[in-house]
Every structure is written in C-alpha cells, then in structure tokens.
Write a protein that binds this DNA or RNA. Structure first.
Lengths: 231, 231
DNA sequence: GCCCGTCAAGAGCAGTGCTCTCTATTTTGA
DNA sequence: TCAAAATAGAGAGCACTGCTCTTGACGGGC
C-alpha cells in the first residue's frame, strides 16, 4: 500500500513536470503544442508520454483548467483584498488583476480567450472556472446594490434582453436588476477587449503608455456602470 | 502576347481557386490549414501547389488581407449608406455590419481577431486594412464634432493617455479632442469584445437573443460616447 | 519464487510543410 | 517552321507531427 502510494506520488510528479514543460512550450510555440517535443525535453521517448497523458488534447485541457483557476484566483484575491465598500476601487483592482495575470501568462491567456480550436470542444468542467472573472465583477455591483451605494439604471431594457439577463441573474445573483447586469456584462466585455487588444498587438505603434490607457478605459466603463467616484 | 496573357489568366484563376478552396477548409479546420488537403481537393499533387503559392503562410496572409478588405468594405458601405447626420444610426449600422460580416465569415474573423500564431508576424501591408473598422467608427465622431452634433467630454485625460491619443488623432483625425477619441476607442474595443464573445461561444447558454443583446450593448456604448438619441 | 502491473523503448502508420528532380506541354523567338 | 525557353505537374524524399502496438525490463504483493 505504501509502495503503491510511492508509485502514485512519482506518477503525479511526472504529470506535474509534463505540465510544467508543456506550459513552457506553450509560451514559445503557442497552442500548437508538440507532445514529442515535451517528451524530448524530459528525456523520454514520445510514446512514453502516453503513460501519463491520454492525448494531446487532454493535456491542453488540463492546462486550460489550471489557467482558468490561476486567473480566477488572481481576480478574486484582488477583490477580497480591497475595502468592500470602495466599489470603484474594487472594480479597478479586479480589472488590473486580470490584466496583470494576462501579461504575466500571455500564452495561457491566448489559450483561454483566443480563437477556439475548431475540432476542440471545451469540456463541461471548464465552464464554471471560466465564469469566475465575470462573476467577480458583477459581484461588486451586487454588493453596491445591497448596500445602497449603487443606483439602478433607469432605462427599460428590450424584452428579449431583459428576459435573458433576468434568467442569468437568477442563476447567480437573484434579484439583481437586469439593467445593471447589462452594464456589468458591458464592463466584462470591455475588459476582455482591452486585454486582448493589448496582448494581440492591436495597440502596437499607437498606445505606448499601456498602464495609463488601461486604467482610463476601465474608468470609462466604471462611469457607464455608475460606480461612485471618490469625492 | 495574348498567348502569354491567357496563361497568366489561367494562372490567376488557379490562384483564385486555391484561395477559395483554402477558405472553405478554413471554415471547417480553422487556422491549421493544410496545403496538401487543398491540393487534394483540386486534384493536384501537393508539390504542384507551390507553383502558385510560395508557402502556407503566404496563402494565409493573402486570406487575411482579403478578409480585412471584406470587413472594411462591409463596414464602410454601412456607414456611407446611412444619413450622415444621424450619428447614432451610423454608429449602430457600422457595428451591425461588422457583426454581420463576422457571423457570415466566422473562420475569417477568428483569423483576423483570434489569438495570433506565435511564429507568424503580420506583414506591414495588413496594418492599413486592419484599421478601416476603427477609423470608420471614429470618423462618425469626427463628423459629429465638425457639425456641432457632438459635445466633447469635459474631463481631463491623464497626461500619458492624452499624449498617445493626440498623436494618434494627428495621424488620422487632426484636431480631434483626445477625450472623444478615447471614448471612440472604448466603443471599438467593446465592439470587438461583443463579436468575439458571441463567436467564440462565451454567450452560449446565457444569451439566447443575440441580436437584441448586441443592439442594446452597442447602444450603451453610444450613450457613453454621447451620441445623441433620436428624440 | 512466481506473477502481474507499471514503465519505457522501438517500430510503424498516416498525416504535415517543403524541396528537388524529372518529364511533358506550351509559349516564344529567330 | 522549328528549336529554345518557360512553365506545369508528378514523384520521391526529408524532417516533423499525434498516436498505436508490441516487446522487454523492473519491482512489489502473494
């Protein structure tokens, strides 16, 4: 039994090392990850890798899952590390944490938010981790609402939009007004766009002060949402 | 001479057919385009393809260029087909045209706006076509400004942001206030985010009425920019 | 001491981009 | 008109990929 567990431990360490090497390759070669190259780096022959990893796609899925968790952790840590009543501060911190994580792990970000691989379908267990960043953002708005620090936008939503967003709200933030959720979604969409533009080179030769630009654009969305400015 | 031109014409037609077949493959297999598969579809042996196309990357570049032009044409046509004084209408039509094009050409959209291939560097001649959509959007704001239908946002921009945006404005829209350009960029970022989320499956199981959702989100950004609502 | 599960290696299959060579055809120029 | 030149296509081949199957070595449990 202890012998079996020592075997299991070595095995787990091997899988961890394979993932680490794969992550390293990801950074240089992008999503076209080569199992043979990983095997070479580990001093194995290519077929031996299949003792630990069922297939290339499964390895990619594992990396994707870990990446989602890394981003989710970073984002939630940034949120819980800020004064809960400082809505605008929380919004900014969360957005900044997402960007920082993306800049630190560009290949993983591209894996998560880049163009999907046609043949590859994201397994069901990636759905929840993928929702952590937007849920964190909308959670800020929910908190502001329950503490009366946020006013609900006055406008009426078109009926189909209201219906979709009400259903979405019921699943995660029961009672949240759909008009506010709509603005939260706009903020999340914008955050994704900002990071993607920066990482995918769309800001090259135009925006040189990336930090300031990012903060300002995030602030614009905070205005749209109605997050109170510090007096 | 006419004999030479008949050869040249056949040759051009072959290249066109190669591109068409490649585009078809793109839709099913994504960016990992196989020249051999294209050759097979054309009843050629793989090496014969290289008579017409220097390399796989060059073929991809050609497809990218044509895609940028297709999107640019669609966007600009939507803009010039709308009453120039109806700023908000123009904004909506341009955004809708971009989305419609993306929905009609999902693989090409992913090629343009998905994660960049690590080894592949976009050639210089893709830069200008790539700027057509954002320039069209900002052009609407410029028109609104020159006709006094748009008020410049009052706030001061942080100096680094102001500097970057002023330089950008000078290159394409001399005299445009950087605060307004900042909001235009926000709108363009949002448009990209909206389309990407929809095309890359982020809206699955949450938003079922995609058209209404898109219009509403675009409207939110129009509000942020200050585009006058129809009375 | 034997047995069985685990691990690694090697060969092999089908696919990829790309190059080189050879042949057939077509175009061009004297 | 007829030879020379340009062009198109085919085939073989190289190095690479994911993945499977078989073979042999090792080690812990009975």
């Amino acid at each position: 039994m202890s012998a079996s567990s020592i075997r299991a431990r070595v095995r787990a360490e091997m899988i961890d090392e394979i993932k680490a090497v794969a992550r390293r390759h990801l950074a240089t070669d992008g999503a076209n990850l080569s199992l043979r190259a990983v095997a070479r780096d580990m001093g194995m022959v290519s077929s031996a890798i299949y003792r630990y990893v069922p297939s290339r796609d499964d390895l990619l899925t594992a990396l994707i899952l870990e990446a989602y968790d890394g981003l989710g952790d970073a984002v939630e840590a940034a949120d819980s590390g800020t004064d809960p009543d400082d809505l605008r501060g929380r919004w900014h911190h969360v957005c900044r944490a997402a960007r920082d994580w993306a800049l630190a792990h560009p290949a993983e970000y591209a894996l998560l938010y880049g163009s999907p691989v046609p043949g590859y379908a994201a397994p069901a267990d990636t759905v929840l981790p993928a929702q952590r960043p937007p849920l964190t953002l909308v959670g800020i708005l929910r908190d502001g609402l329950t503490h009366g620090r946020l006013t609900v936008p006055a406008e009426e939503l078109p009926e189909p939009v209201r219906a979709d967003l009400t259903e979405l709200a019921d699943a995660f933030f029961p009672g949240m007004p759909s008009a506010l959720l709509a603005r939260g979604m706009a903020g999340w969409t914008q955050l994704f766009g900002l990071i993607s533009f920066e990482l995918f080179g769309r800001l090259n030769q135009t925006i040189s002060h990336r930090d300031s630009y990012f903060e300002h654009q995030v602030g614009l969305m905070a205005d749209l949402i109605g997050l109170p400015r510090p007096e």
